[in-house]
Amino acid sequence: MKKITLLLLMGMALLSCEKNKTSDCGEKMCTYQFVSVGIRFVNNKGEATEVKDFKVVNQRTGEKLQANSNISINTIKGAFVVVDDGNIQSLSEEGDDLKITGTSVETSQTKSAIIKVSGGKCACHIDKISGTEQIAFD
């Protein structure tokens, strides 16, 4: 029974992956999951706060990025998707510094933070390397 369960689990793991068919990237298995990196803006009490003029700029290229999953933008107060797998080609394999900026609706204060995220032509998914998960207004 344990062998059958193990075989079923291995089979499901293989079915949840796909081969990366890019020939110059070599053979690799990628999952079907869709990865995103988010940020949260909070006020001086640590509570989620509304933000305007949200933007993300790749410091290496100067390009403004917008996550494809931002279709549902601002469904959670103060929470934003910074980048997702839809942006994978815009990012380098070594990782790029992304400058995130937003302005508090309450105080009109503007704050920025930098996070590092990798991607690239041969990557299966984006990967957050470093940086904060929230930006706090004074």
Rank of each mutant, 00 (worst) to 15 (best):
K19A: 07
T61Y: 03
S130Y: 11
K21N: 08
A113S: 11
Y32P: 05
M1R: 11
S104Y: 05
G131R: 13
S130A: 12
T103M: 11
G62V: 03
K2A: 13
T101D: 01
Y32H: 09
N87K: 02
L7V: 11
E93Q: 11
D84L: 13
G11Y: 07
L91M: 10
K3T: 14
M12C: 13
G78N: 12
G119M: 01
E106K: 12
F137H: 15
R60N: 04
T132K: 14
D97K: 15
S72I: 02
Q59Y: 01
S69I: 04
S118W: 06
E47D: 09
L7Y: 06
Y32I: 08
T22W: 00
K99E: 10
T31L: 10
L15A: 15
D97Y: 03
F34W: 12
K52V: 12
L14G: 11
E50D: 08
C17H: 14
T107C: 11
F137M: 10
I135E: 05
N20E: 05
C17D: 05
T101S: 06
K121F: 01
V81H: 13
A67E: 02
K45L: 08
G78V: 03
G86Q: 08
T107D: 15
I114K: 09
S104M: 06
Q66I: 06
K52S: 07
N87T: 01
T103H: 13
T31C: 03
D84A: 11
Q59R: 05
V37R: 06
Y32S: 08
